[in-house]
Design a protein around this nucleic acid. Structure first.
Lengths: 182, 182
DNA sequence: TGCTAAAACGGAGACAGTCTCCGTATTGTG
DNA sequence: CACAATACGGAGACTGTCTCCGTTTTAGCA
């Protein structure tokens, strides 16, 4: 990658992060280009779609999400608490930019999406937590990690969409009660 | 309401139903106007926002949703089956037009939304089912109907958003297990 | 029936966002 | 330092939203 290209790539990403944080992932891409001091063409050359741009920003938090999963396992807390903590952290991360959660819901089961691979990384993180608890015999038989992932992402997306700023805990408690051994 | 106004109102609604079914609730409103054979101004006078238009279409199914809730209670099935059936019917209805589910999630806790009232009607239907089972002692203590509603709408929205056409049943089973008495 | 005020119509056009195209500028390699 | 190769930028085509206002339709009344 040429030096000027790299420079612009970074500028776009930095400004996208700011704008997406301020106004969500549906903000105008032209404005991001303007703020970054580049032409629209440059933005679209580097990131052909909005999803590609969101995807590039996701890198930061897929790492954190992954680390959080392992940290959760490390706490050795009882199943309920471990899951609640992990789910809350996960949701905190994916709702960082308004609108991101529902994009993740959409990408999760769509291999054609640019975001698919990162969704898999997060899915794997979740699977580690679920598998760990399952191995300990803490879960109901037949709990499917992918399914849990969808459900929790759904909660994130509801919270993100909601006009009121909703406490996700009560919803997560239902989910947790639905998967831990009765 | 003047006769011509009524005529146009109905034409717009009929065509919106078609277009929303074919291409989801984010289709072009101008196209709906065109198909209905009216000017854009006429459409916007009758339905100042997209939500107002969706809301008008919702009337059909809030009725059906309400009836479904009472039918579910009437079956006298065991709690798990009653809830699964009710939730599935509910989701079938609100995912009739692609994109509607997430709009409902957003409107549910936003009294300013034109769709708020109809969300309440559906919320009340859900409450009847939950209250009924609660009175029978079938549910865990402290189950909150509004919270269940959010969760199930979230499942609907995930299913609606998902590229793959997802089976909602496994997700609903987790939710149901999370609310019925252990 | 014919007249008129009130109500409703419609579509041109202002505006905002997406995305492309291509003449121009920048890079780095030989 | 020359010259491909690479990248830039922003004008402008396109699509969708939404408003404004001159024109048409309606309904009530004489």
């Amino acid at each position: 990658m040429r030096a000027d290209a790299r420079r612009n790539y970074d500028k776009i990403l930095a400004n996208a992060r700011i704008v997406f944080t301020e106004r969500g992932t549906d903000s105008s891409l032209d404005e991001i280009a303007k703020r970054a001091g580049v032409g629209a063409g440059t933005l679209y050359r580097h990131f052909p779609t909005r999803e590609a741009l969101v995807d590039a920003l996701m890198q930061d938090w897929t790492d954190r999400v992954s680390a959080d999963a392992d940290a959760a396992i490390g706490t050795g807390l009882p199943a309920r608490e471990m899951l609640l903590g992990w789910f809350e952290h996960f949701i905190d991360h994916i709702t960082l930019h308004r609108g991101a959660a529902s994009k993740i819901c959409a990408a999760m089961d769509d291999p054609a999406s640019p975001m698919y691979r990162k969704c898999r990384v997060m899915g794997d993180a979740n699977r580690r937590v679920i598998d760990h608890l399952d191995a300990e015999g803490e879960l109901r038989p037949g709990v499917d990690a992918a399914n849990v992932m969808r459900l929790v992402s759904g909660v994130a997306s509801v919270a993100d969409t909601s006009h009121a700023d909703l406490d996700v805990r009560p919803m997560l408690e239902v989910v947790v009660d639905g998967i831990v051994r009765a």
